[in-house]
Design a protein around this nucleic acid. Structure first.
Lengths: 296, 296
DNA sequence: GCCCATTGTCTACAAATGTGGACGATAGAT
DNA sequence: ATCTATCGTCCACATTTGTAGACAATGGGC
């Protein structure tokens, strides 16, 4: 049975044109190299090197053999480099789960540059609004938008952004129904709500005053884009994160209602399993998101 | 320091999806494979295979490593195949020396098909009329044309052809000077000789009668083509191998003189150094020449 | 739930390889 | 011609690796 280490010894000896120079370069005894090459020639049944005490020439068949031995060494070094590189540079698959709006609004703009920044890494995004058990379902990162603080679930939490929730309505609606001047006036207005069971809107102003108001339920949908469209259509007033309705406001299709007040805030947090044993790839994704998402 | 044999062990284990199947396929103890892969993982610092007594999966980094290990194995097998192929199929360079006429008349028609028959072999032909020391000058084969038997030089001799030497003259010459009816009449004819110091022509007929005759020296040249041209020009009678003057005879430019008699013969012999250690390529050339040159 | 066949790991011992230093060969300097 | 430095090979001994068989783990069959 072949000993591939002998192929490499032979290649080194040829590279250095002698056993003694190769031994010095590799820092091994020359008797080891001599013995190994002799054994290789014995098993192959050919003379690879013609040598005397002062002469050293590679035979023609030795030259042919050397080419493949050298190529083999390159592959061996590449195999080792793959391991070293994988350990040092993020690679492999990172599985992320997020809600559909978060996927659309935040991650859709982040993942392409992330993928470009780490060519060896594959990001797998699963957008769903159902509850996801991160550990059980094999995800590395969950992106969670939440209004209240998350419970302590034994997972690593990394808060990355907070967004104010604004009241908005179309100019047409406000023209018809009038501009509310105070949060208490909202109870006489049509509300476009995310949930019928919700307790209305908790309003807070810069002075720290908190007021709970409940508009008249006019339309209910638990999808932000649908609520946005309904508001633009003049159906009533809705409460949405600033980021979601920024474009409509700038275009004049929506107007802030009670601009000095906010209807709470939404926080975006990354959840990961234990930091221990965390791959460089997962850490890289987390750091990238934190660095590229404005704080709020 | 790496042990490349472990790379191969790992590749085999992955190929067979387990230590036990790989051990059976390779006919080695499974404890050997287990120990070697464990050692490889230790030196690389990573887990290449996740395994329990009944589960076996290759890690992602193990897959990457496997690709290079498999490529390395391919190169190793190619290196061995190069050696085995070289030993089994004629390849490399065969150096042949021959006289110019032999090169032109015999080898020029043989070497192209020889080269086509053995793509991996290179034939190097050195045509010279000077004496060549085959061993000292590094030739593998010498092609010698000789009239007398070659001396025993310690080299392998392989006779490949014998060619009769014919007397020929142009029809015009014979018209003017008359057809010799008997070898003794040649002494009154103009002779075109290869050497002034030669003792004339030794004639032999099919009955085995041997007669020595000496024509009148009319022209001397030690190059067969020149003698051929002189004879065609009507300068006199010359003695040349059948092969050399066959075309002129068939064209009617030359006519045989004393057709029942031959002026000796020329033998073509291959000379090689010792048969021991002879490469397959040299043997192949010899066999090819023997097979393709008509005996005489 | 129990039994059995097969898996992969571990270990004491056998076998193979690595090595230091001696030695003969050789080429260059004197 | 002689001497010296360096080459590659050889060998007794040290070190490492290969292996047989025991053992725990596991999954399928009954």
């Amino acid at each position: 049975m072949r000993n591939l280490n002998d192929f490499i010894v032979f290649a080194h000896v040829v590279d250095h044109k002698g056993f003694a120079p190769a031994a010095r370069a590799l820092n091994v005894p020359k008797s080891t190299l001599s013995k190994r090459v002799a054994e290789l020639e014995r098993t192959l049944g050919v003379r690879l090197i013609n040598r005397t005490s002062r002469r050293f020439t590679v035979t023609e068949i030795g030259e042919d053999f050397y080419r493949h031995a050298a190529a083999m060494l390159i592959e061996a070094e590449a195999a080792e480099a793959v391991v070293k590189g994988r350990l040092a540079e993020p690679s492999g698959t990172v599985r992320i789960t997020a809600s559909v709006p978060t996927a659309q609004m935040m991650l859709a703009g982040l993942l392409p540059p992330l993928a470009q920044a780490y060519p060896k890494m594959r990001v797998m995004l699963h957008a769903t609004d159902r509850f996801v058990d991160v550990v059980q379902e094999g995800f590395d990162i969950a992106v969670r938008d939440h209004f209240a603080p998350l419970p302590d679930s034994g997972m690593v939490q990394r808060r990355v952004a907070t967004d104010a929730i604004l009241l908005v309505a179309s100019p047409a609606y406000l023209e018809t129904s009038g501009h509310p001047r105070d949060p208490s006036e909202l109870s006489r207005h049509d509300g476009l709500l995310a949930s019928l069971t919700a307790e209305g809107w908790t309003m807070r102003n810069e002075a720290g005053v908190v007021v709970r108001v409940r508009p008249m339920p006019r339309f209910v949908a638990d999808e932000s884009d649908v609520l946005l469209s309904a508001a633009v259509s003049g159906l009533g007033i809705t409460a949405l994160p600033r980021k979601i309705c920024r474009a409509e406001i700038e275009a004049g299709r929506l107007v802030r209602v009670l601009a000095d007040w906010e209807a709470g805030s939404v926080t975006t947090t990354l959840l990961m399993p234990h930091r221990r044993g965390q791959l460089p790839s997962v850490r890289a994704v987390v750091d990238f998101i934190v660095a590229h998402v404005p704080e709020g």
